[in-house]
């Protein structure tokens, strides 16, 4: 099989490999879909989250909390 793929050119070889490795058996194919959708969602949400944070730099509560003045000495009121 490897010899046949080697004979193909670039893209076709990649597609043939993908087909042989991931899509030939249905169980493997479904597992691939589930696992990759989970991974891609994680990557996508991390990306949008960092985009959101870079747009709103300095405005989130976490960042505001980090630069609060020390409050230990005035706890009587």
């Amino acid at each position: 099989m490897a010899a046949r793929e080697a004979a193909m050119s670039g893209m076709a070889a990649v597609r043939a490999t993908l087909y042989n490795v991931l899509m030939r058996r249905n169980s493997v194919y479904v597992t691939t879909c589930v696992v990759s959708s989970y991974a891609l969602t994680n990557v996508y949400l991390k990306g949008t989250d960092s985009l959101w944070k870079s747009i709103n730099k300095g405005k989130s509560w976490e960042e505001v909390q980090a630069r609060l003045p020390e409050k230990e000495e005035e706890d009587d009121d």
Partner: peptide, 11 residues
């Protein structure tokens, strides 16, 4: 469209 509230201003 993509701007959040400024937490310091809310405080």
């Amino acid at each position: 469209y993509l701007a959040s509230f400024d937490a310091a201003a809310i405080r």
